[in-house]
Design a protein around this nucleic acid. Structure first.
Lengths: 184, 184
DNA sequence: GCGAGCATGTAAGTCGTTACATGATTCT
DNA sequence: AGAATCATGTAACGACTTACATGCTCGC
């Protein structure tokens, strides 16, 4: 029941087609809620049925016709109600950490290499988050932004994502080093 | 297909019943792979069918009879093979962050209160991780431990868990403050 | 000409959660 | 007396993933 509200929240900055929304969620929200296009198409139709979003057909030249979804008043209300509900604890699923857990009995070199690879993708995500943060701030200080911006939720979450990647990056390097030191 | 290896890795320190394993995973591995008892019982039976674990019936007085599972040689081999496989990117699912994302249009006070609550549970988890780390180190320095311990995988993951909770705790406080400053 | 991107979905299958069932024992 | 712990599961449901289908356009 949460994907529904992740989709709704991702539509807040403006209407979007399912295809566009899938890409938007990949940068704005993938950090804490990941969804594949298939799932998003289904959820958008469900939201439309329940009157929480409204669809408009947009005919394009030299591109397939698309359906653009906008949050309705009822949708905004449902999302506000949702913010009052208790949340279940956040969950992380990471196969790599299972491999780290078993690394002593497994292929140490392979796990260390996997950690290097993960470190690289953390570095890429980190750069993306830093660019998005700079985009929002547009030269303003953080304090100034938090006082004047129309919305601060997305900024708070970007900060969380950035800090997470930063720390993960550091840990990957450290853990790979520790495992390699062990290999001798 | 990953729960299977999370279960196998959790059995490495010693044989356990499904019931015990569910609790063990709640402290050792919940950090990066969470599973409910129902799922663990099912997976253990699957692992037994495939010869990756072996079950022994243990009759107890004044307690129900239980089945204790131990990793077999084939199980150890399967886990080692698993460490060589590529991992998909780690995924976080956190309802609270959806609420933070929508907080500007929702109930700010409720979201701030939810962040306080999350901060408290982070503090508790942090204390647990710190105690587990101290338990493993037993007075030794980290360097000494990494050089001499039989296994370092669990330690590396405890460090990751600790750092995560520490940072999450700090972020929750900061975000709650920012949202409350907004409410005025 | 070929792959990548635009745009939307269905169908099938796997994974994960919730509710329920059982029944003895130990703690408050 | 009632709740929590020990111990294992089944059944039903909901969430998520994978594979596939369609067809047009743009850049290389």
């Amino acid at each position: 029941m949460s994907l529904r509200y992740a989709v709704l929240a991702s539509l807040l900055p403006g209407a979007a087609s399912g295809y566009d929304l899938a890409k938007r969620m990949d940068v704005s929200v993938a950090n804490f809620w990941h969804a594949l296009p298939t799932q998003i198409y289904g959820e958008l139709n469900g939201l439309e049925r329940d009157g929480l979003v409204e669809a408009t057909e947009v005919t394009q030249e030299s591109r397939p016709t698309k359906r653009v979804f906008a949050v309705t008043e009822a949708g905004r209300g449902a999302l506000a109600d949702y913010t009052r509900l208790p949340s279940r604890p956040g969950a992380i699923k990471d196969e790599l950490l299972i491999k780290v857990q078993a690394s002593d009995m497994g292929d140490r070199a392979a796990v260390a290499a996997a950690l290097d690879g993960r470190g690289r993708s953390c570095g890429i995500k980190l750069a993306v988050y830093e660019a998005l943060i700079a985009d929002l701030l547009r030269g303003r200080s953080e304090d100034a932004y938090l006082q004047t911006a129309r919305r601060i939720g997305p900024y708070l979450n970007l900060r969380r994502g950035r800090d997470f990647e930063r720390e993960n990056l550091e840990w990957c390097g450290w853990a790979a080093g520790a495992i390699r030191a062990r290999a001798r």
